[in-house]
Write a protein that binds this DNA or RNA. Structure first.
Lengths: 250, 250
DNA sequence: CGGGACGTTGACGTTAATCAACTACCGTGG
DNA sequence: CCACGGTAGTTGATTAACGTCAACGTCCCG
């Protein structure tokens, strides 16, 4: 299913590293496999955190819904990702499948005891938590300080770096426009318009509604500050509230 | 300095729990104390993560700056809070003091070895990471799916719950409007207008520019969805993108 | 061929950013 | 003591960004 089945992985990219972690966990703890279909619920916000869930294939979304019906998708969890880590007694987000997905389920207490006994498991869990935190830094920044177009561009690059089909360089958007919108904190219309604007600017090209090719990666990342390979050109505007000087180091 | 010095804490609120954790860590690892003043740098984004920093007094901000000068404050870290946890080799945010602060500094490797040896330290670190993650859920949601006024209200309630002076019920805003703005993803003007609007609506009253009393907590939390004690009244609007039905449980 | 989910596009209205003036509150030095 | 300047905060006018409303297109599955 992945390049790193047994032997040396050819080029250990991020997905491979995460996937190996999950395999390690499975080897040590003997989780139980499980298949689920789109929109099936995996964890409910507020419910007792009885299970930790690993994703081997497919995609999950973690989300919250406000009393008035707004949905916020905290994160998407793909292959190698874990849901339900930490010591909190309940799930802090609901989680459901975006697409058909394969899971490995671990009872939460086996993780707890496993961490006491095995330094391998300790490392895996800490690394996974650290990764999740890094991802949060990125998404929080994206939603917190970028304009709508920039959010979409930034997300697109994330999708592209994670999910590029090996042969063609084609990125796959595995979720609906509504999912993207609820993750990025904008409306579906805004997502749609941003994407089509990018296409008109020849930054990307849509193969179909869910598959795209990045034509001009550099220019696209100018929109996507923070995932930058390069410094931005000049089209970005200047914030007033940033402080110019930073003081003595600790 | 805090209610839980040695004996049983009178009423163990969130701050106390966190503070006790930091004390435990200090007792086990013998960190070194350190005092710093406003705007002094504690950690630099991208630099090697050599130290883990605990806060005993004051307030820190963790932030990123874009190439074009926008600043995003990921989080504020108050007493009991920790900066630099996890296994990532570098800091993922810069950190500096908002106010005069007292720190305890641990070399990162002592945390690593400490977690291998001591299950107490393991628990402390995991709990701290879990707390940080919960806080991220909250801030990400706040910035991701709330209108400007709602963000300010939500943040105000967080400040109020964490930092209320015991005697008077007065909340203290320990950072500037610019800090609030860069955390909430809005401008200083918008923050200012929101606060003054709340005052005109008799939801809060400002003692001075940094101190406020919540006059009508319930009505204020209606603006602040997610931190709600109650369901919202009717002024909030309905999102289209939330799905009505959730499917089978796993 | 009809219905429904999903996506796109356009017209319009609201929100919040921008620009700009102004006030309040320091600390410093005449 | 009061001018002076610098920082922080407020307030108003204007504009840009994006949400809302609505129509329409496309694809899929019956």
């Amino acid at each position: 299913m992945r390049s790193s089945t047994q032997g040396v992985p050819s080029r250990p990219d991020v997905a491979d590293v995460k996937f190996t972690r999950l395999q390690t966990l499975h080897a040590e703890l003997q989780g139980t496999a499980r298949e689920i279909g789109p929109d099936q619920l995996v964890a409910l916000e507020g419910a007792t955190r009885e299970r930790v869930i690993g994703v081997t294939a497919g995609l999950l979304r973690c989300f919250r819904i406000t009393p008035d019906g707004r949905r916020h998708i905290t994160r998407f969890v793909g292959p190698g990702g874990l849901v339900g880590l930490g010591t909190h007694p309940t799930y802090r987000n609901s989680t459901e499948a975006v697409t058909d997905s394969s899971l490995i389920v671990f009872p939460a207490h086996t993780l707890d005891t496993g961490m006491e006994k095995s330094s391998t498991i300790r490392k895996v869990v800490l690394d996974a938590l650290t990764d999740e935190m890094s991802a949060r830094d990125q998404t929080q920044f994206r939603v917190g300080r970028l304009w709508a177009d920039e959010r979409v561009a930034n997300f697109l690059l994330e999708v592209h770096s994670c999910a590029t089909t090996v042969k063609s360089g084609t990125g796959e958007i595995r979720m609906s426009r509504a999912d993207m919108a609820d993750h990025l904190g904008v409306t579906i219309e805004t997502v749609s318009r941003a994407l089509n604007r990018f296409q008109k600017l020849n930054l990307i090209k849509f193969v179909d509604v869910r598959h795209f090719v990045v034509l001009r990666p550099r220019d696209l990342s100018h929109f996507a500050l923070g995932d930058c390979d390069e410094a931005p050109t000049g089209q970005a505007r200047l914030a007033r509230s940033a402080r110019s000087e930073t003081h003595h180091a600790a």
